[in-house]
Amino acid sequence: MATDKGRRAFIGMCARMTAGLAIAGLVGVSVKRLTAMKWVWQIDPFKCTGCGRCATHCVQNPSAVKCVHAYPLCGYCDLCGGYLRPGYINRDTAAENQLCPTAAIERKFIEEPYYEYNINEELCIGCAKCVVGCAAFGNGSLHLQIRHNLCHDCNQCSIATACPSEAIIRVPAKMPYIIKGGFEK
């Protein structure tokens, strides 16, 4: 009898220990998951060459990549290389003068001779045409970013696979954007 009691007590103790360890392990894993640093995909604008693949290779349609505008960098030029196509007829908002294929850049008169340029993200397809024009003729205030309200954060970003300049990188979710010289107006 004494041996049976001892065996039962031993089995019970083992079961309790196993359950305790399992609970502790689950708590540990949960805590680790909660506190672990999350990473998201983002475009390094200083590596981006504006190849157009963000528009064609994202699993989202239209792409989760959008043009953003670093207002503090912008020259507010009348002749904006990101807004007007080469060989424009007039410097105005007529469709034939715009570089953007979806008219996603809105031009607003501020005061002579300054104009403000805003991105309509619902129209932007992330093609980078304006980014190339702005970098070549202006100072690069227009640049691409992955918008995290749209991005699925795929395990393997299909744009990253296609990017020729390895500009798509993982960044901490706490700092999900790489903005040239400030983002907000």
């Binding site: 504006g50 190849c51 157009g52 693949r53 528009a55 064609t56 080469p86 570089l99 294929p101 093609c127 980078a128 045409k129 190339v132 024009g133 070549a136 296609a162």
Partner: peptide
């Protein structure tokens, strides 16, 4: 890869 359809 094909040419960039959005080339400047």
């Amino acid at each position: 890869r094909p040419d960039n359809p959005f080339a400047y």
